[in-house]
């Protein structure tokens, strides 16, 4: 198969790194070559965060450029719009409808645009969901990342079993049940 490119975008602290690690390990279980690219350091302090996951028969570049992503998994609405140019023609956006004000909005220098969702839907194939509520229902607002991975796994036609195994191997034992539940809720989302 051709290389499949997933961009995971969000706000520092939302758990995008764990999500990319789960996806990386899951595609290995499926027998693919994979590259995952993360950014550490400065951008983790509440800034805009991007990780790339690319898999296929043989993957060279670890990064994704404009017009190349098959799937953008956005943990926050504004971040989906920011990285829309990276979506391939015919690509898919899965977006958490949660809004987190960036500092220029907090300080009143600018406003959070109010028609982000509509704008995304005009330009791309979008699945929007309130992953935060689902995560809270699963047991913790911190499980937003795993809820979204569930939705993404379903979209990419992965079997749920492989994912559950990877989750069990990746997250600490005391969060296992919470994350499995969060994953299932995402996987069942339609």
């Amino acid at each position: 198969m051709n290389t499949y490119s997933v961009m995971i975008v969000g706000v520092g602290g939302q758990g995008t790194l764990l999500a990319s690690r789960l996806l990386g390990n899951a595609v290995i279980s499926e027998g693919y070559d994979v590259k995952v690219s993360e950014v550490h350091g400065m951008s983790q302090r509440g800034g805009s965060v991007i990780t790339y996951v690319r898999f296929g028969e043989k993957v060279y570049s670890p990064i994704i450029e404009k017009g190349e992503a098959d799937l953008i998994l956005a943990f926050e609405l504004l971040e989906a719009a920011r990285y829309l140019p990276y979506l391939k023609k015919g690509g898919k956006i899965i977006v958490n409808t949660q809004k987190i004000d960036p500092m220029p909005v907090v300080t009143g220098n600018t406003v959070y645009p109010d028609s982000v969702r509509e704008e995304l839907q005009k330009k791309a194939d979008v699945t929007a969901l309130d992953a935060l509520s689902l995560a809270v229902e699963a047991g913790s607002p911190k499980a937003v990342n795993v809820v979204l991975m569930g939705v993404a796994a379903k979209h990419m036609n992965f079997k749920a079993d492989i994912w559950k195994k990877v989750i069990e191997e990746t997250v600490p034992p005391k969060f296992k049940e919470l994350n499995l539940k969060a994953f299932e809720m995402g996987y069942a989302f339609n």
């Binding site: 706000v11 520092g12 400065m42 951008s43 983790q44 302090r45 509440g46 800034g47 805009s48 504004l78 971040e79 719009a81 920011r82 829309l84 960036p102 500092m103 220029p104 909005v105 600018t110 406003v111 959070y112 645009p113 028609s115 982000v116 704008e119 995304l120 330009k123």
Partner: peptide, 10 residues
């Protein structure tokens, strides 16, 4: 996106 997107600095 044809909307103005505020930056998100750390």
């Amino acid at each position: 996106a044809d909307i103005s997107i505020p930056g998100r600095p750390p």
